[in-house]
Design a protein around this nucleic acid. Structure first.
Lengths: 355, 355
DNA sequence: CTGAAAGCGCTAACAT
DNA sequence: ATGTTAGCGCTTTCAG
């Protein structure tokens, strides 16, 4: 039997809500037992468990995780820093992260950095003040200060959607340079020799393009055209891009886009102009988003397993939070897949004739 | 001058981090002054401000908002409950919410309900335990328990993306029934008489369709076809839908889709089959997503100002949190706009001839 | 403009 | 299996 409690919740500061003390009093147990019912029910005798749960039910008690977090120094909160919510390329990843974390009773604190390392730095400050148990970042490019802050806190960090030799902590992604390189090799091997690049100015897409161009250069080829749009990739930009490429139509042209959405726009404008794809233009996207297999013609692209990245990021974090510091450091390259569809199908009139 | 502090942070439970007490000691002030520097810098003398800020800088102090929230009973956290992150129709809204809240130093706690009222109910429980200062919900359909819990806490709630006579608290949205009705009237007025409905089984889209059909019925018309897909709207579904509609081609058909993505799929399959839109089929979407004006042919649709909903939801919440309980209850219908583009352009051969 | 004292509601640590 | 004690790190309240 617990000893009678001192009166509680009488000061003007209180929230007036039901607390563990009230529940404990009504159930005839000590507050810590209520806490155990909530957090470690296995450690409480069945009868006590039921009694406390009934009181919780009757009183409508809602636990205060803020107080719990302060006392236990664990928040069950994971901060997820995203560049934007409006670029669907990342949606699968964030959805997977939130879903898998929720299964383990962790919640997501969301931060939007707008693709800016400086804004991300501010965000990290804000977020750290809430003492998340873990942080998931999009990308591997951060300010030096961000890196130091994150490392000095010792909070588990997962970087995603990129590769680096020196991750802050854990890393689950793929190499954008490798994609550019392999994409170039792949298209060269198929016989394409004339290239145009259509991209937006997002940092990772830009690096894919640069890597693509470097690989072409190794084969003595320079792209005939490069167009960079601002902001998020949009169908409209792809359409505009194809219009500027029309004068290049004398010879078939391989149009390499930094996103499926841009590529879809190119295909749309081609359909509008009655231009045959892949006959007069071939088109390559990036992302293998859910529409890519169903455009007309179907879009060749680079498949990224966004949901897989999210699932693995969540899993790696949860593993660490379980206390498995003995587990090897996580630095996983999930890779990518070049997907050949109709938009790069070789026709009877081989492009290799332009060599 | 503050009196010398009792030793702090010596127990095994401490986080070993720098606390306000340490900062206060080094700056020669009381802890509460450090707190004021952080929260109400206007109330602190310039010299003190600078001195404390310097110590914060030197020590790398990171405030603990958990402790602050417990003491002040304010978390600066807003819970945002979304059905999914992978349906881009909502992206603008959530992006706007997070962005506008961040400007006011509020952060977003994210919850994914998967379109299920029951899952939302659990989520609300979890979320309430973190004592958010506000909650933003997607939709107005919740379990009775959810409604009661939310109302009994007294936390400001904003429901979005729908209308209801009895909002939990604040409401910023539009009527899906009204959309279905107006859409039918609009298309009937343009002369269309033969309709097919293509939709996914999301609850709000379904209600738009039902309302559309009711309005048609008032004019003695029943849709000739209705196809309901499962899951999120996808281009592939739109393509599949048009294939099943091909036998109906004898007379021109108005295909009403519950999402721009479905409609885009219909247009894609039409292009693939060499079918003239709007000649043989006319197509209507929903959402006016950023691609709708740039499909081929451009897509007639219903414009929803998703970003506006998000901005207003954030603003309404912030207004309430500023303590303006005197402000009138928020119940705003942001409306919608029927957008006529090429996919419903009337041709020389008027559809009205089929009457 | 600044400070002392007293909690906020919970749980770690240590009993029993 | 359950209880006692003592905080977690901050901010409210009340004083000066």
């Amino acid at each position: 039997m617990p000893k009678p409690q001192k009166p509680r919740n009488v000061s003007a500061r209180s929230t007036q809500g039901v607390t563990v003390f009230e529940v404990a009093r009504l159930a005839g147990v000590a507050p810590i037992t209520v806490s155990r019912v909530l957090n470690e029910p296995g450690k409480v005798k069945e009868a006590t468990l039921l009694r406390v749960r009934q009181v919780i039910e009757e009183t409508g008690y809602v636990r205060n995780q803020i107080a719990g977090s302060l006392a236990s120094n664990r928040t069950r909160l994971v901060a997820v820093i995203v560049p934007v919510l409006t670029n669907p390329i990342f949606s699968d990843t964030y959805q997977a992260i939130a879903t898998w974390l929720a299964k383990a009773d962790y919640q997501v604190l969301l931060g939007i950095s707008g693709y800016h390392a400086e804004q991300e730095e501010e965000l990290i400050d804000v977020v750290l003040s809430r003492r998340p148990d873990g942080i998931i970042l999009t990308g591997t490019i951060h300010t030096e200060l961000s890196r130091r802050r994150l490392q000095s806190t010792g909070i588990p960090v997962v970087e995603t959607w990129d590769m680096t030799e020196e991750p802050i902590d854990m890393l689950i992604g793929f190499s954008h340079e490798e994609i550019g390189r392999r994409e170039a090799q792949h298209l060269l091997a198929k016989g394409y020799r004339d290239f145009a690049i259509v991209e937006v100015d997002d940092p990772r897409g830009h690096r894919r393009s640069e890597s693509f161009i470097r690989e072409l250069a190794l084969h003595g080829i320079a792209p005939r055209h490069r167009q960079t749009f601002h902001g998020l990739p949009a169908l409209s930009q792809g359409r505009a891009a194809l219009l500027t490429l029309l004068p290049l139509r004398q010879r078939p042209l391989m149009i390499v886009c930094s996103s499926d959405t841009l590529a879809h726009g190119v295909l749309t404008e081609a359909a509008c102009q009655g231009i045959n794809v892949p006959g007069e233009f071939a088109v390559m996207g990036f992302g293998d988003m859910n529409f890519a297999a169903f455009t007309f013609p179907s879009l060749s692209t680079v498949r990224i397993d966004g949901a897989g990245i999210g699932r693995r990021a969540a899993a790696a974090l949860l593993e660490r939070l379980k206390g498995n510091t003995t587990s090897p450091p996580v630095m996983m390259d999930v890779g990518f897949t070049l997907v050949d569809r109709d938009s790069t199908a070789l026709l009877a009139n081989p492009w290799t004739s332009t060599e």
